[in-house]
Amino acid sequence: MTHQPPSEQPFFSAVVVDTLRQGDQRASGGKKPYDRLRVIWLGRTRVPGIEAGVELRLNGMVTQVDGLPAMFNPRYEILSRQEHL
């Protein structure tokens, strides 16, 4: 997750890792091209419920930012949270 300093325009960013398809590597010759996705919410310094270990469903248009697929201001649904022991 990334936080901007107060002097810059606010945004909240996280890199989401696709763990549901890690075993499915046959179609791309054993290598998945997009197992990570940068998610960016503009105008926000945090997004309630978004933290490390949370499983999400995202909906939005994908673009490229610095060679990584990215979504800006996606709709999201929190599917589950990782329990801390």
Rank of each mutant, 00 (worst) to 15 (best):
P74R: 02
W41P: 06
D24C: 10
R57H: 06
Q64N: 02
A14C: 09
R57N: 03
Q22Y: 07
Q4F: 04
G30D: 04
R46A: 10
R44S: 15
E83R: 11
G23T: 14
I50F: 07
F72E: 09
Q9A: 07
R81E: 05
D35F: 07
Q4P: 05
R21H: 09
Y76K: 04
Q4R: 04
L58I: 01
F11N: 12
V15A: 06
L68V: 15
Q25C: 09
N73P: 08
M71T: 12
M1K: 13
G53K: 05
M1R: 04
F12E: 05
F72H: 12
L79P: 08
V16K: 01
V39I: 10
P10M: 00
K31Y: 13
L68T: 15
E8I: 08
Q25D: 11
I78Q: 10
A27C: 13
A70Q: 05
R21N: 13
R38I: 04
G23Q: 05
Q22K: 11
V16F: 00
L20M: 14
G49I: 03
K31G: 08
T2A: 13
R46H: 12
L85T: 13
T45Q: 10
R81I: 11
L68K: 07
R57W: 04
V62S: 03
R26Q: 14
L37H: 02
S13M: 15
V17K: 01
D66E: 14
T2Q: 12
Q82V: 05
P10D: 07
P6C: 01
H84W: 15
L79T: 00
A52S: 15
M1F: 05
